Computed example of a mutant assay.
Amino acid sequence: MPREQPNISWPDGPHPAGPPPPDFPAASAAESQLAQRRAFGANLRALRKEVGVSQERLAQLANMDRAYVGHVENGRRNISLHAMWQLAAALRVSPALFFRQPSGAEEGQ
Score class of each variant (00 low, 15 high):
residue 51 V to L: 08
residue 53 V to H: 10
residue 76 R to Q: 14
residue 62 A to F: 03
residue 63 N to Y: 02
residue 66 R to M: 05
residue 59 A to P: 04
residue 59 A to C: 09
residue 52 G to A: 09
residue 55 Q to H: 06
residue 68 Y to G: 05
residue 60 Q to Y: 02
residue 62 A to C: 09
residue 75 G to E: 12
residue 70 G to A: 13
residue 77 R to H: 05
residue 56 E to K: 14
residue 80 S to V: 00
residue 50 E to G: 01
residue 58 L to R: 05
residue 70 G to T: 12
residue 53 V to E: 06
residue 73 E to V: 03
residue 79 I to G: 06
residue 62 A to H: 06
residue 81 L to T: 13
residue 79 I to F: 02
residue 75 G to A: 11
residue 58 L to F: 04
residue 53 V to M: 13
residue 72 V to T: 07
residue 72 V to P: 04
residue 54 S to N: 09
residue 54 S to D: 10
residue 51 V to Q: 06
residue 63 N to S: 12
residue 79 I to V: 15
residue 52 G to K: 11
residue 64 M to Y: 02
residue 75 G to L: 07
residue 70 G to L: 07
residue 76 R to C: 00
residue 76 R to L: 12
residue 70 G to P: 08
residue 55 Q to F: 02
residue 74 N to D: 11
residue 54 S to Q: 11
residue 67 A to K: 14
residue 77 R to M: 05
residue 74 N to K: 15
residue 66 R to W: 00
residue 50 E to T: 13
residue 81 L to V: 12
residue 53 V to W: 09
residue 61 L to P: 00
residue 78 N to E: 08
residue 64 M to L: 15
residue 60 Q to F: 11
residue 54 S to T: 15
residue 64 M to T: 02
residue 71 H to S: 14
residue 73 E to A: 03
residue 51 V to I: 15
residue 77 R to Q: 13
residue 81 L to Q: 12
residue 55 Q to G: 06
residue 72 V to N: 06
residue 78 N to L: 10
residue 78 N to Q: 13
residue 68 Y to D: 11
residue 56 E to C: 06
residue 73 E to H: 03
residue 67 A to L: 10
residue 54 S to V: 06
residue 58 L to G: 02
residue 73 E to T: 06
residue 66 R to Q: 15
residue 80 S to M: 10
residue 78 N to K: 12
residue 67 A to T: 14
residue 78 N to V: 05
residue 65 D to G: 08
residue 50 E to R: 15
residue 60 Q to A: 08
residue 70 G to W: 10
residue 58 L to E: 00
residue 53 V to D: 13
residue 50 E to D: 15
residue 52 G to D: 08
residue 75 G to W: 05
residue 52 G to Q: 11
residue 68 Y to R: 13
residue 58 L to M: 04
residue 61 L to V: 00
residue 65 D to P: 00
residue 60 Q to N: 00
residue 63 N to G: 04
residue 53 V to P: 03
residue 80 S to W: 03
residue 77 R to L: 04
residue 51 V to K: 15
residue 50 E to M: 05
residue 52 G to H: 10
residue 78 N to R: 12
residue 62 A to W: 01
residue 57 R to N: 02
residue 58 L to T: 01
residue 66 R to E: 07
residue 57 R to Q: 10
residue 77 R to Y: 01
residue 68 Y to Q: 15
residue 52 G to M: 12
residue 57 R to F: 01
residue 80 S to D: 02
residue 52 G to Y: 07
residue 74 N to W: 01
residue 78 N to H: 07
residue 57 R to T: 03
residue 79 I to Q: 10
residue 58 L to A: 03
residue 69 V to A: 11
residue 59 A to L: 08
residue 74 N to Y: 04
residue 77 R to I: 02
